[in-house]
Design a protein around this nucleic acid. Sequence first.
DNA 1: AGTATGACATGCC
DNA 2: GGGCATGCCATAC
Length: 111
Amino acid sequence: MDEQTHDRVRDVIRSIPAGQVATYGDVAAVAKAPSPRIVGRILAEDGHDLPWHRVLRANGTPAPHLADEQLQLLRAEGVAIMDGKIDFAAHRWEESPSAHAEEDDSQPGLF
DNA sequence: AGTATGACATGCC
DNA sequence: GGGCATGCCATAC
């Protein structure tokens, strides 16, 4: 598996500031993951150390089993919850790939 | 070794 | 608005 993608996804999620949220698709896009599914899988595998609660679905609603924890954690960070759903318009994390811009092509040391 | 599934997203009908 | 199919990778059986 690609450690780079794996690491990038974790890095991106860690880059999400408190009080803001992002969708799997956004994280996948910023982390340059081949598919948003990878993001969900990485969270399930190695996301225990990451603010996984800041990652939501495109609908603004987390997974059914996690939704309860999600909403509480997010609300604790100051996120506005609209009837069990996150207010995207108010807390959508601005994908700033350039902000942490790692090398994308790069063969480190191969230059 | 192959099939099914999972913290998903997107396109089409 | 809801259901079906596809892309992708790892784990479980």
